[in-house]
Structures are given as C-alpha cells and as structure tokens.
C-alpha cells in the first residue's frame, strides 16, 4: 500500500469510529422499538473506503473498528456482534458493489449490506446465548435496518457526488 492510501484508510477508520460513537448518543430505539437497532453510520466510512481506496482498506476498517471499540470500552459482546455482522456485510458489499450504477445506487447496495449485517449479528447473538429464539427478531431487524441502510446509502450518494465535483476521480487511489 502506498503511504497516501494508508493515511487515507486511517482517516476513514477514525471517522467510522467517531461516527459510531456519535450515533450511540442518538436514542433511535425510542422512535423505532426494535432491540439492537443502530443507525450504522460507521458503514458509510466502509463504503467510502471501498469506493475510494479499494477492498483491502475497507476490510481493514471493518476489522479494526470493533478492535478499537474493544480496546476503548472492553465490551466483548458488542465486539463479537459487530465483527461478525461487519465481515458478512463486507463480503456481500464487495459482491454487490458491482451493481452500482447499473441496477442500484448506493441506496440499494446499502440495504443489501444492512440486511446481511443483521443476519450476521443475529447469528452471532444466537451463538452467544446458545438459543435460536433470537432469530425471531431477525424479520423486524431486517425491516428496520433496511430503512437505516437506505438512509446511509443516500448519504453515500451525496458524498460520492461531492467528491466527483471536487475533482477526485471515482477511484482516487486506484488510478495512481
């Protein structure tokens, strides 16, 4: 990796970490009563990393953000949940990003990722409590998280539009 790419990845990693901190202050479950629902702003940074720096940078953010969270707060359960959800949705993101600009904008891609993020998290939760009863929440979580996914996707659309206007090529670091 080139130095510029490493620096940019680190910047996006810290951005995703701060976004996940900020969203923890927003009481989203007060408005939508689905247990475990989060806005998932941190995933905007992952999508941006995939788009601007490539797959490996995105994977770094997916893996290192939960690690940072674990070091800062020592919450092992949320580490397991966000890592498993993150890796599953990363795998799906890498595949589904090929549909960008052809079938979906980032809105649709983000919905797909959000659904698989929920699946990964619920599967990990079922593994942790050793009971499949958690899967009962999966439909509700999928419905609610596809709404937040759509929101994140539209934010991502705006970001890409701004970057293009600013003169950054679509694959700023790929091009070099």
């Amino acid at each position: 990796m080139k130095t510029g790419k490493i620096t940019f990845t680190a910047l996006l990693l810290s951005l995703s970490f701060s976004l996940s901190l900020i969203e923890s202050f927003i009481p989203v479950s007060a408005f939508i009563p689905v247990p475990g629902l989060k806005l998932g702003f941190a995933n905007i940074a992952v999508m941006a990393a995939l788009f601007l720096c490539g797959r490996f940078s995105a994977l770094c953010i997916v893996v290192l953000r939960p690690v940072l969270n674990l070091i800062m707060f020592g919450n092992i359960t949320s580490f397991i949940l966000s890592l498993s959800g993150g890796i599953l949705s990363y795998a799906v993101l890498v595949i589904s990003v090929k549909m960008y600009g052809k079938v979906f904008s980032f809105g649709g891609i983000s919905i797909i990722c959000a659904v698989f993020h929920s699946i990964g998290q619920v599967a990990a939760a079922a593994f942790v409590v050793s009971d499949t009863v958690v899967f009962g929440y999966l439909p509700l979580l999928c419905a609610a998280s596809s709404a937040t996914g759509l929101l994140n996707g539209f934010i991502m659309n705006c970001i890409i539009e701004r970057i293009t206007i600013l003169g950054g090529s679509k694959n700023a670091y790929h091009a070099k």
Partner: peptide
C-alpha cells in the same frame, strides 16, 4: 436507480413483515 432502490426497500420490508 432511485426507483430500483425504493423497490428493493419495499420488497425487503414486505418480506420481513
């Protein structure tokens, strides 16, 4: 693309519910 996004969203919500 915007229309496809909304269709996907509606489909996911419908199937989930």
């Amino acid at each position: 693309l915007f229309r496809n996004d909304i269709i996907l969203f509606a489909a996911v919500v419908f199937v989930s519910l």
